[in-house]
Simulated scan of single mutants.
Amino acid sequence: MLHFPSANSAAHRPSARDVARLSELLDDDVWAFSNCRVDAAGKPVAEIDWFFYNIRHGTLMVSEWKGFPQRVLSATDTGTQWLLEGGVMVANPIEQVSRQLDAVRAVLRSSILPQHFPAFEPLQLRLMQSVYSPQVDDGTAIERIRWGKVYGRLPELAAVISNSTSPAPLLVPSSEARLKLANALCALFRTSFPADVKAKLHASKKEASIDVVHRISEIHRQIAALHGELAELTLLAAGGDVHPAEPQPRPKAQPAATKPADTKATAKKDSAMTEQQRMQAHLARSFRGVNGSADEAGKALEKAWAAVLDDPLLHGETGISVSLFGSTGSPLVKEKHGSLAKLLGMQLRKWCVLQAKAAGLEPSDVAGKPSNIRVR
């Protein structure tokens, strides 16, 4: 984590313990501005506990940190106070962070976007909001919050900061631009630019002859495309069929090896490889041309699973392996959308069952194979 503390000597400071813990949980792709003071035209001055910017994913978060004298019994959405142990009612921090987020959004649109992201559509700017309180625990009744989320543990909050993606990411185009942006945000939020942080950004500027973030993303896409092509070629070379309805000619049989192999073990191995390769081929074809949005990725998964359901060679004696579908599909969505469950909004097996039912099939469990399903 690159930490930019308040430049005002009279401002509150986060505890050294919290800063150290965040530094352990977050890497240097996350810029953290603490105790910011934001002046937005037409709005009251906002005091921001933490503003996080993940430069790798292009995501932004405004976070309010609260310490209460007692445990939080009930954390509700806007419109009602929070209830502490002992019957004490306190102001709702969700309402506070919402006002702060409005101020931050306004100044980013007016001061940062035109100067540093001129091609970015201001109305597309997305910011997350959160409340962190150590007094929130497993016994706290947390109402469903419309905007943002409440956290009682730093690792949970840090995981969201590190892994969340956005349909409209605010990505920095180059290392030089990062230095300029960091200076601009420090001036905007009235935070300092520590020498060690500046040294890290200067070092990345000297070492980066290419845009590392975009290049890594490009390499991942190229690897995925190559895996898909390889899977299809392997199937064709083995006489398999990517689409059962359109059979491909089988190649001529090869002469038997001089020294016979263990045919039982070889058949078992080839069968397992073919199943994985066929699954990979369906996914690769479905994801070809996907633009990276969550909606497009979800539709690609639906298309791939429909192809699996239509492929009789994937309906083995123990049904269809949902876990194999998941392990093969996860690399295609992990970089931009996290886990399959996060993208789909539910566990993969449940989603697969619902998709099968929607296709008019009758999915059922397979005894001894909890990750498999059988369809009729």
Rank of each mutant, 00 (worst) to 15 (best):
E302A: 14
E302V: 15
E302T: 13
E302R: 14
E302S: 14
K303G: 01
K303S: 11
K303D: 01
K303T: 12
A304G: 12
A304H: 08
A304V: 06
A304T: 05
W305D: 01
W305F: 14
W305M: 01
W305R: 02
W305P: 01
A306N: 07
A307C: 10
A307V: 02
A307G: 15
A307N: 13
A307S: 15
A307T: 05
V308W: 03
V308L: 01
L309K: 06
L309D: 11
L309C: 10
L309M: 13
L309N: 07
D310G: 09
D310W: 00
D310E: 14
D310S: 15
D310I: 00
D310R: 14
D311Q: 09
D311S: 11
D311C: 11
P312W: 12
P312Y: 12
P312S: 12
P312M: 11
P312T: 10
P312D: 13
L313V: 03
L313S: 13
L313P: 00
L313Y: 08
L313G: 09
L314S: 12
L314I: 07
L314M: 10
L314F: 11
L314W: 10
L314V: 08
L314A: 09
H315Y: 11
H315I: 06
G316V: 01
G316C: 04
G316K: 11
G316D: 11
E317R: 08
E317F: 00
E317Q: 08
T318G: 01
T318W: 12
G319E: 14
G319Y: 13
I320E: 12
I320Q: 11
I320F: 04
S321E: 03
S321N: 08
S321K: 04
S321H: 03
S321R: 10
V322C: 13
V322K: 06
V322S: 07
V322F: 06
S323P: 02
S323H: 12
S323F: 13
L324C: 04
L324M: 12
L324I: 05
F325D: 02
F325L: 03
G326Y: 06
G326N: 03
G326R: 04
G326I: 05
S327A: 08
S327I: 08
S327M: 09
S327Y: 06
S327L: 08
T328A: 15
T328E: 12
T328D: 02
T328W: 00
G329N: 03
G329W: 04
G329C: 09
G329A: 15
S330M: 11
S330W: 03
S330Y: 06
S330I: 05
P331C: 09
P331E: 08
P331A: 07
P331R: 07
L332H: 12
L332E: 05
L332K: 02
L332T: 06
V333M: 06
V333C: 10
V333P: 10
V333R: 10
K334G: 02
K334T: 15
K334S: 14
E335A: 13
K336S: 14
K336H: 15
K336V: 03
K336Q: 15
